[in-house]
Structure formats: C-alpha cells, structure tokens
Design a protein around this nucleic acid. Structure first.
Length: 684
DNA sequence: AACTTGTCAATTTTT
DNA sequence: TTGACAAGTT
C-alpha cells in the first residue's frame, strides 16, 4: 500500500514526514490537523516500518479518538488500525491502572472508577463526617478546587490555602480525607486516571522505562488543553528517541477551568530542547466570510500568539445575524430555518446548532420535536445521571469491588429494606469499634449489637444477594459468557426490578421508562461482552470503560441535525452552523463576567471569546449568529444585551434578520443597544 | 419509612 | 418561577 501525500500542502507534508525529535505543530482551526496526524501515522506504519502497536496517539475526547481510528482504516487497513494505541488520556489511564493495579493499590485486583457525581457524593459524606457540611454549601465548588490541585499534582500536604476564599479552606480540609477514602475503597476518580499514572511513572524509573519502551512514537492532539498532570504523563511516556509530536492551537484553549495550562503549548519548545515548530494556518474548511468573523473576534483577545487564519476557499454566503425576541422565539425560528435549509437541499446531518450551555438545548429540542425534525444531542450525558442507572451501576460495582463502600452505601437501603439512618449509624459505630470497614459490618450484620431485627435481616438479605452475584460472576467467568444474564438475575434478586416496575397504570411515562433504562444498560453489557475482542470481557472491565467512555445511545449515525455545546463541538465541522444565545450572560457566561461571582478573572472572558471562535470556525459554508432581546429571569422579564463578541464585526459581510418587531442588530452593536433600550422601556 | 410542607437558591463547559 | 432538599408529620 503506497501512501499518497499529493493532496497535502507544503507545511502539512513537512509535519507528516518529520522524524527528527520533538515536533510542535501550531495548527489553526480547519487547517487539516487531523489529516496531518492520520497521514503521519500512516507514513510511519507504511513507509518507516514502525509497528502499529508502537504508536500512541492521544486525543481529548472519545469521539475524536474513534474518528481517528475510522480515518486510519482506509489508510493502513483495518488490521493495522486496530493495533494502534488511539485513546484519550483517561482511557489510557484505565488501561494503565488495570495493568499496574499492584503498583497503584499495593495489591493487584479490581478497582472502581468514580465519575464526578460519585466524587461529589464522597465529598458530601466527608464534609458531613467532619462537621463541615452546611445547607448552602456548594459541593461541586469544593470538588472543583480539589480537582484543580490534583491536576496540578499538588498533594493534600502541599496545598497552599488562600484564607480569604472560604471554599479554599473547606476544600483543603476535605482533600486529605477524600484521597484517603478513594484509596481505601480501591477507587480512582477521573483526575486519578491521569494523575496517578503520571506520579507513579515519575518516581519509578524502571516502570517508566518499561512503558516508554513500548512506544516509538507519541502524538498528542489538542495540546493546548492539557494540564500539568497530562504534561507529566507525556514527559514520562516520551520514547527514548524523543519522538514526541504535539498539535494544538492556543486560540482554541477552552479548558482553563479544568486546569489546562496554555503554557504547556507556549513553552513546549523549552521543555523539549531541540523542538522543531511547524505552523499550518491555511484554512481549507470555511468560506472567507466565516474566517473574517473568527479573525475579527480574536483580534480583540488580550493575550495570544499573533496569527490569523488564511482563507483558501472562494467567497460565499454572508453571515446571518439573527435577532429574536425571547429564547423561545429563537428556538422556534431556528427550527423553522433548519426546515427551510433542508428544503433547499441540505441533508439534516449537514446542520448543527451550537450553544454555550446544555440548558439551552432543551428549548431547541422541544421545537425540533414539534417540527418533526430528526436530531441528535451530543453530550448532556443525561442517561448515566439518571437515578435508576446510577443505582444499577452501584449494585454491579459492589459485587465486583468488595471495598467500594460508596456504592454499597448508595444501595444499602434501596429498594427499602429496613436499614434507616439509625441502622447506618450502628454499623458505623460497630465498624469503628472493631477497626473494620463499613462494608465488613454490613456483611457481618448478625454480630452487630443493638441492631433492629428489620435492619439486621435487611443487611443479611442484601449481603447474600451480593454474594450470590459474585458466585454467578465466578461461573460465568469460567464459561466466558452470560454477564448480562447474571446482572438481570441479580437485579431481580435484590428487588430492583420490582421497585422499578410500575404497579398500576396511573404512574406516569417516566415511571415506565425506569426499568427500561436499566434494561438498556444490561443490553449494552450484553453487546459489549459479545463483541469485545481486545479485553477479556469481565464485569469489572465493562464498568471501568462505562464510566470513562459512555456509549452513545443508538449508535447508528443517521441523517440528523446535531445539537451540541460549544465545548462538545471542538474538532468537528458542519456545512451549516447556527450559533445561538449570543447574549451577555450566556456567551460570555455570567459566571465569567459577574463581579459578584466569587472568582471571575479577566482571563475567563478571553476563554469565552475563544469558545466563540471555536464555534464560528466549525462552519464550512454558512453561519448563523443568533441572539434574543429579553428573557425570563426569576419569573420576571429582563432585557439582555448582545454579546460583546458581536461588536466590531465587519458589517459588509453580514446580513441581519429580525422578526416580529425585534429591532435589527447592527453589526457595530449600536443599533443593538438602541434595541435594548427600547426593550427596557417596554419592560417598564 | 414514606409523605408533606416549607425554605432557599439559582442558572457552564467534560473526561 | 421553579426545583432541589431539608425538616416535620403520619
């Protein structure tokens, strides 16, 4: 198989062929960086004789990793593509943890992975135990702080507390207990999946040599969004010949809130001496009108590497600036316009609606349903947040990992089995007195003193059901089949099935859905155990993968409109893009501009600007920028101003669209503020 | 243990 | 205005 590079430009070709040490590729939006990555990998495999399993390419989302895999198939064939290490940092971490569980936990074996919901639950429990919990405490804010420390690889003892910030103090107090709890439960949170491997590799030279030795080439996409821990992991895994290539764009750095350090990309050349830098800035994706908007927006950013996208395509449609009255009207108009564009000959899957927050999706969703337009909602992972799904997963987890106290607590009295608050307290006291774990106490309920008969019976029943499940897993492991069946029996056994099945018809649609959701989970387990080849199918592996890479509902990608948050849209593109809710307070989001918000920094607004830039540059042929004049807030109608990102756009490439007396939005923003004034007067 | 009432806060992004 | 959640009641 010969690899053709004829359709690549000079800079792209250079990046594909370069093999002389560390390489930094600064790639503008739409400049073909995925193509560079895939062709580089193909070139290494086909021309340079590198074995596919010696290449590790890390991207940021599962979607991006999967897409890369798909694109590799026609280039190198399915067999070779299968052997490449294409993953996210987090799924790499899962694999690492599985292979190195002894080094991570002191003893080889199963472990649990906690998602953010689980982690918040753990923080809540610790805060309660330590007497820190009060009603209005924002547990997510506490966890966010801990997470930032972890990602900076700052341990509990090294934390520098800013006493002025209340949450800093609380988080610092919770942090050591949180870490201890994770360890005692043999659990990893999302951050651990990167931090723990990075820390382990950092201090264990032999291990580092073994892992780095597996690879001859390491590539990282979206490098501008990596954090300290991820950078450390990259350093530790960089092969001896320093064949490390990173691709990124500082203008698309949108994960600062998650601890991403743009300095990773800005200082890459000094971290890896001898780095070669290649810039690819020619944009092959968008019409020049779209790029003018993108360039104009970024020109006003305060700190960045100076560069602008170079258009290669011919001029096309003007940018459509749309002003509607309310978010509801906006959603309605968007739905109507999608239909019109479809009637003009676009396929549904060529269209995308992008927004700042997932909340905004709901209105659009409703309107699309009314219009009968097929759509696909990316992200917004509502499925795994559903209570019954989390409960079912907790049942499975405790069966697999006997130390997963968090999961056991979650389902201890659900469905109700007589183990109330008092009983839990008894169990805790018993565990403390005997120096044994809480889980142990539950399994030894018959020896707990002063225990209500109902509570004792409930614990015993649950413990026996879990043990029966473990036996089932043993036997299915021997035969290698039937995990899904075992899970169903288990859910029946513990009464989950009965509790989730509506007894009489008067219960609503949602009630009917609940058991169906659990069944969906079981079906995906079944599908996984029958199709998975790489790993030996085990419930433990399934659960670990489930948390890190959530399977999309309804896999087949049909002809559907895409609804996505701006964050979720990164790396993707569509012929027609509608960017909605371009209002102050929505984009940029209130939390980044509100002086009352605890820590709004000016740099946050820059990040919002980059988010806008990311959204704009998703469009190939046509771009809509829409906003509304007023919205409901706490039951009152409030006028809202246009997003600051709409001011200073070149008017000659824009056309304005308004409806129902909504005053037109001038490209300069003047007319817009006049409209705003009018709306304000009307509100009085 | 389940149900009812009342209070209070609130509105980001994702692995 | 709504929704989440805690306290209070049966």
């Amino acid at each position: 198989m010969a690899l053709s590079l004829g359709h690549l430009d000079e800079n792209q070709k250079q990046a594909v062929l370069f093999t002389g040490g560390p390489l930094l590729v600064l790639a503008g939006a739409g400049s073909g960086k995925t193509r560079v990555l895939t062709h580089r990998i193909a070139h290494l495999v086909l021309e340079a004789g590198v074995r596919p399993d010696q290449i590790l390419a890390v991207s940021f989302t599962n979607k991006a990793a999967e897409e890369m895999g798909e694109r590799m198939v026609p280039l190198v064939g399915a067999a070779a593509a299968q052997k490449l290490w294409l993953s996210t940092f987090h799924s790499f971490g899962v694999r690492f943890a599985r292979e190195e569980s002894k080094a991570l936990f002191g003893e080889a074996g199963r472990f649990s992975i906690f998602d953010q919901g689980d982690a918040v639950g753990l923080v809540r429990e610790i805060a309660k135990r330590e007497g820190l919990l009060d009603r209005k405490m924002d547990l997510w804010a506490v966890l966010a702080r801990i997470s930032l420390w972890k990602n900076k690889m700052v341990g509990p003892s090294a934390v520098k507390v800013n006493d002025a910030v209340e949450y800093d103090r609380i988080a610092a107090e919770v942090y050591p207990h949180y870490e201890a709890a994770l360890r005692s439960m043999r659990a990893l949170d999302f951050d651990d999946l990167v931090v723990r491997p990075a820390a382990l590799l950092q201090k264990d030279a032999a291990l580092r040599e073994r892992w780095a030795g597996r690879f001859r080439h390491l590539m990282v996409d979206e490098f501008q969004d990596t954090n300290v821990a991820q950078m450390e992991l990259v350093k530790a895994l960089t092969p001896a010949l320093r064949n490390v290539m990173v691709v990124g764009d500082d203008d698309q750095a949108i994960y600062g809130w998650r601890g991403a350090e743009v300095t990773n990309i800005l200082d890459f050349a000094s971290t890896f001496p001898g780095t070669t830098t290649i810039k690819i800035l020619r944009n092959y994706r968008s019409i020049p009108e779209v790029l003018s908007i993108a360039n104009a927006a970024m020109k006003q950013a305060t700190r960045r590497l100076e560069k602008s996208l170079v258009a290669t395509r011919r001029s096309g449609d003007k940018i459509r600036l749309v002003t509607l009255g309310t978010p509801e009207e906006e959603a309605k108009w968007i739905a109507g316009e999608l239909r019109r564009v479809h009637q003009d000959g676009r396929r549904w899957c060529d269209l995308a609606v992008l927004y700042r927050s997932n909340l905004q999706a709901r209105l659009v969703e409703e309107e699309l349903r009314v219009e009968g337009i097929p759509f696909r909602l990316v992200g917004g992972q509502q499925f795994f947040e559903k209570k019954e799904v989390k409960d079912a997963i907790a049942y499975l987890r405790i069966a697999v990992n006997p130390r997963d106290e968090l999961s056991l607590r979650r389902i201890l009295n659900y469905p109700t089995r007589g183990v109330g608050d008092v009983a839990v307290e008894r169990l805790e006291r018993f565990a403390l007195a005997r120096q044994r774990s809480f889980v142990h106490a539950v399994f030894q309920a018959e020896t707990v003193p002063d225990f209500a008969d109902a509570a004792r019976a409930g614990c015993q029943k649950l413990a026996r059901a879990i043990e029966r499940m473990r036996e089932r897993l043993e036997t299915t492991a021997a035969s290698g089949k039937g995990l899904a069946g075992a899970a169903l029996d288990y859910f029946e056994d513990v009464g989950l099935r009965a509790d989730l099945t509506p007894k009489d018809a008067k219960e609503g649609e949602a009630a009917k859905q609940r058991w169906g959701n659990v069944e969906f989970l079981v079906r995906s387990l079944e599908r996984w155990e029958t199709t998975e080849k790489e790993d030996k199918p085990s419930l433990a592996t399934f659960l670990q993968r489930l948390t890190v890479r959530r399977e999309e509902e309804g896999e087949a990608v049909g002809d559907e409109v895409t609804l996505s948050s701006l964050h979720g849209s990164k790396g993707l593109e569509w012929p027609v893009v509608m960017l909605i809710g371009l209002n102050e307070g929505t984009l940029p989001h209130l939390r980044t501009i509100d002086p009352k918000a605890s820590e709004a920094a000016p740099t946050d607004v820059d990040e919002e600007r980059r988010l806008f830039y990311v959204g704009v540059t998703r469009a190939r042929d046509r771009l809509y920028l829409s906003r509304f004049l007023r919205r409901e807030l706490r039951g009152k109608e409030v006028p809202t101003s246009p997003s600051r990102f709409l001011s200073g756009l070149p008017a000659e490439i824009c056309e304005t669209i308004t409806q129902d007396g909504a005053a037109p939005l001038g490209a300069e923003g003047n007319a817009a503020s006049a409209a705003n004034l009018l709306a304000m007067l009307r509100a009085r």
